[in-house]
Design a protein around this nucleic acid. Structure first.
Lengths: 196, 196, 196, 196
DNA sequence: TATGAATGAGTCTTCATTCAT
DNA sequence: AATGAATGAAGACTCATTCAT
């Protein structure tokens, strides 16, 4: 059999995630996770060999959970501006979330674990996925004459950098919700063709 | 006494900076620094009590080194576009630098050391300083009719977020110089009034 | 779980006691105990967190071992003088013992660990316990007209101070067995009603 | 020259005594004394090689300060009971003193520094000196028919043990002034011939 | 004489990891 | 599968003592 009880595996990841959210990545020891799971030291090693391994798993499952939310909305009859706003609102939630937030742990992990191939890099994939989704939204918006833009892809990248910037700022010195709203509004206002 | 030899103090900071650049903040031990300085364990403790203390000092001296570079140019007869480009070029260097780069160490340090007052936070001060400088440049550019912009301050914040975003992306998955140039160009092109 | 193996716990205490008897309290390091037990550094910390903790345990078990020896004899048909002599002989053993003697360690420990409440103080309890036992013996002796005394409790306290005095003298400059006998005899001779 | 400046030597001993009174013997480091004296590390070593050496000196000068106080009174026309009370009052002060009290430091020192010859032992000398003084007082009292006693020397030793006992009890668990008075009164009441 | 920077040995303490049961 | 006692390496920190000035 590949991996003992799949159920227990999931349980460990769930508990461990809370620990990482609370302590970041570097401060977490196997002992912390053992205690959070109320299992034995040896028991944990049966499933995972290190905090790195555990965190990588958590990160991958996070990546799966995200994504396609927006694409589902692309077929609806709402305007592209609405959809863009929806996307940004989702990002805002990520930027400001406090509970179950492994953002700092993720940065700490990434600083210490640069994969050989860029495509193995979770952060890269997440960024590129964002650019892709945004590009689709913007292009469709241009087609529908909602947005005025010459280069959808460049704008998409630009927005993603802003979002990344706000994310790291939120974690290093904190940003108020007001500031985030203000910035997101500024981003959108630059795109939308104002009705006369 | 000004705390033992000021010269040795500087020497330790210099050597330590290299260690932090190479290993980040969390991985660095007092032993690492002792070895890099080729002094005794006790000798280091004569000057600094912890890696935190050492890194804080490095960070503060970094902060001093930066700053007013640009403001000096404000009186010259170059165009504001030139000055903006100069500012961004400086930022580009920071984003892409490999040598003596304590960016990752700084993030790691900040994650673990959130000061009570926001104004004590080095990252916050650095960000706000950037916004201020940019705002001055943009406002002057607007006055001189080089830039077309309604809200200089909002644009300044926007640019700073983009720069922060690129900085963290560079450290988590790497950005090529080309990408940075492209993005910076995109930023500027949105501002400048195109000559007919 | 009753904290790992109770057997090993006892073993550590036994070995540690020898170390404390040999070196006093202050000179003993966790390393000393680790070596005396032939276990690993981390292994010791599994059971005890400090020399203080270990010594406290030893002290408490000592306290249990002592005590009621004498009271058991109170019902027998021996004279009270016999019983008093028995008590003093026991004390003499304590004063003069060399092997497994943690007296000095105990003083060192007490100097450094004064509990808030007097009733938590092991030395106080030991002293008061002695006074109580002696008082009972003396009172019974008075009742049986073996001893001539006006204040049993005061005499009990007096005897205890003498014993404490001899204990500390034995440890600071040494007392010969002859001197102890002489002093104890002097104590008793002052109490007993001489037969005509 | 034997020893640099005698004045500085005395100064160091004076400052050091305060440190020992505050921290006992074992906890005091050369650094503590350096700081208390506000001299340099090397400077202290010029005069003394260790805390042991310093403390020994303090102890010896203490011994000199004590003593003959009482013998001076032997020629006066006060009763021997008065003189005995005076002696005990002096001892009471020692037992209860809090300020400038190096009693604990002395015990700690003695535990670790048993001299070869008993006559080199400060504690022994102090004890024997006490016995001698008391014996003289008691003998004179017997001669004057103030005290009823068969063996002055034995009683003297007995009293000294009681005093030692109270001293150590005071330091390990504390004795109230009332208790000390009570005990001393009990001691004297056993000696004095009651007037009819 | 006097200074105080520098040394390095020694202790404490924590953790990842193993392994007998 | 699971347990948890045991190990030992590694890092932090302090102090007595020396030595160039």
């Amino acid at each position: 059999m590949g991996e003992k009880s799949e159920q227990k595996r999931e349980y460990i990841l769930k508990q461990a995630k809370e620990v990482f959210a609370a302590k970041g990545f570097r401060d977490v020891t196997m002992k912390d996770i053992v205690e959070a799971c109320e299992i034995s030291r040896g028991g944990l090693y049966l499933y995972f060999g290190s905090t790195e391994e555990i965190f990588r798993e958590i990160l991958l499952s996070e990546l799966e959970d995200e994504g396609d939310d927006i694409t589902g909305h692309l077929t609806e009859d709402s305007t592209m501006t609405d959809i863009l706003m929806l996307f940004l609102k989702e990002q805002k939630k990520i930027i400001l979330r406090k509970k179950q937030d492994i953002t700092i742990a993720t940065y700490e992990y990434l600083f210490a674990h640069k994969p050989e191939k860029k495509t193995d890099n979770i952060a890269y994939n997440q960024f590129e996925q964002g650019v892709k989704v945004l590009t689709r939204i913007l292009e469709e918006g241009i087609a529908r004459e909602e947005f005025y833009l010459e280069n959808a892809k460049a704008e998409a990248a630009n927005i993603m950098y802003v979002l990344e910037g706000m994310k790291i700022c939120a974690k290093t010195f904190g940003i108020s919700e007001g500031k985030v709203d203000q910035e997101l509004l500024y981003l959108v206002s630059g795109l939308v063709i104002e009705e006369v």
